[in-house]
């Protein structure tokens, strides 16, 4: 994994929640989705992804359930909880404000 796309601390959680807002997904699906949407810019290290999932689950932001994947295999699906939705809204706002601030600084110079 290239060093230039290290995620900012706490951003991974935001991305996971955002991905899950649309539909329930398994871990691999989440990682693939992020990779594809970001056009391969963001590659999630599995060593971070799963601990983050467990952490979010423990925080009550997401819930996990075993189900069957599109390929017909047993897989663990994660869904966002109401608590997670509220959190996502807060963090999204925060992130946009942050990104805007960075943008402002970069364009000012």
């Amino acid at each position: 994994m290239p060093g230039n796309n290290e995620l900012l601390h706490g951003t991974l959680e935001l991305l996971i929640l955002r991905v899950l807002r649309a539909s329930a997904l398994h871990g691999w699906g989440i990682s693939k989705h992020i990779r594809e949407v970001s056009r391969d810019t963001l590659q999630i290290n599995q060593g971070s992804l799963y601990p983050a999932l467990y952490r979010l689950e423990r925080q009550g932001m997401i819930a996990a359930e075993w189900g069957t994947s599109d390929e017909g295999r047993r897989a663990k699906f994660y869904t966002i909880t109401p608590v997670g939705r509220t959190q996502l809204a807060t963090e999204e706002t925060e992130w946009r404000r942050f990104a805007l601030a960075i943008e402002l600084v970069l364009t000012s110079a």
Binding site: G27, S31, E71
Partner: peptide
């Protein structure tokens, strides 16, 4: 056990891709 299953699934899917 869940962790193991989940990882195996992940690797299998990645390989299939």
């Amino acid at each position: 056990r869940d962790m193991d299953d989940e990882m195996r699934f992940h690797i299998d899917m990645e390989a299939r891709d």
